[in-house]
Design a binder for these strands. Structure first.
Lengths: 221, 221
DNA sequence: TATAACCTTACGGGAAACCATAATTACAAA
DNA sequence: TTTGTAATTATGGTTTCCCGTAAGGTTATA
């Protein structure tokens, strides 16, 4: 497991949970900071002292206070660190769940994992640490769509609407009526069948139940 | 406040936070162990010496190491202790947030409080200690649904398993086969239909799709 | 032992979903 | 206008789900 880990987050209490996960995974030494600049300096010093950190877990947003900072966000920190030390593993741990942001950090800034804070955040953080340790990448399911462009890009508002109606307990017949009432086209039973069939294939679902379960896990509805 | 408290958790650092909370609440003597077996022996010894502990705060998961253990989880420890010493107060302090687990420990095993580790874990732990000291129970807000919902009280592991299989895309026929293969009874198609019908009524679901969507939202699966 | 209450399983009819194919419509390019 | 393509709708057949009824089995209690 990782030898030297740095946790960067401006809220002390959140750190506590992250530290818990790290210790349960037997990380050797774990340190934490509450400012991006501190994170940068600690990592730089680690390299100079020949005892580099091999993992950074950082938040994205840091509230400003009296201390003047060079790095105003986790994103700037990631950019600078990945430029100087490309081999340093970085896991983003943030409430931010916009796909655009995730895509930017993973694809352009080469972060190694992106975990959304939330009810399952710590569990996913564990998986992320595991994955990154195995030279793999990880992103939370709810924002996984950000990387697999093909699937998510083909899904439009109509599909989402369809899935929502379906998950609300309407039969395909009732969905047809509902769409007709709202003057949404296409609305025929046959078209609805076709769309749902396409979605089932896209998400590798066995049936409509499975489909709804999958898209719910992905946070699409 | 409590006189004699035992904290059981395999991660030293978490203990530190718990001890801090206990101190701030003026608990007299606080001791800690990192193995379930040690916790059991200490509590047993306390009773034999006429100086019994009056509160146990324990984790659920303990990673295995070289030491052979009789109790492999906090759950087993709780069951044993509550059987022998029903009056001993027990607070669960765990990352586990599945409602099913919470329900089992609170309702069946008669734990006195359930606190989820996490960002507000220590704060809630304080509240839990307070509540238990007043002969009350406590569960973290995020899992409070486990106790409050009348409907979910009647839902057992079989039902959860059924819903999981259903959400994994298995047809009722396939579920029947799966249960037979695992020697789980009942397993007939007819019984599965009946159980699912009952669940649909309980959760006011129109059909199986709706049912899965609802229980997913509730966090039951 | 008898009885009642409940659980499990079996069966059948109707509804909805699933699947393939064909007919119709809409629309852009020739 | 004609033609070709794609989207939408329609149709029929098969499977699965939904729902009632009923037969056999188990358990608790008198």
């Amino acid at each position: 497991m990782f030898n030297k880990v740095l946790v960067s987050d401006d809220l002390g209490s959140i750190n506590q949970g992250v530290l818990t996960v790290l210790e349960s995974m037997r990380a050797k030494t774990v340190q934490q900071v509450q400012y991006c600049d501190d994170a940068y300096l600690k990592i730089k010093k680690g390299y100079l002292d020949q005892t580099p950190y091999d993992l950074l877990i950082t938040d994205l947003s840091f509230v400003k206070d009296y201390r003047e900072q060079n790095f105003r966000s986790g994103e700037e920190l990631v950019i600078a660190l990945k430029q100087e030390y490309p081999e340093l593993k970085i896991i983003i741990y943030s409430v931010e769940d916009r796909l655009q942001k995730v895509r930017l950090l993973m694809n352009d800034h080469k972060a190694n994992a992106y975990v959304c804070k939330g009810r399952r955040g710590l569990i996913e953080l564990g998986k992320a640490i595991e994955a990154v340790h195995n030279e793999d990448i990880f992103v939370s399911p709810q924002v996984a769509a950000a990387l697999s462009k093909k699937t998510s890009l083909e899904i439009d508002d109509f599909d989402i609407n369809l899935l929502k109606l379906l998950s609300n307990g309407l039969s395909q017949d009732e969905i047809s009526v509902s769409l007709k009432n709202n003057n949404i086209s296409p609305s025929s039973l046959s078209s609805i069948e076709k769309k749902l069939n396409k979605l089932r294939i896209q998400f590798k679902a066995n049936n409509a139940i499975h489909l709804v379960a999958i898209v719910k896990d992905l946070g699409l509805i």
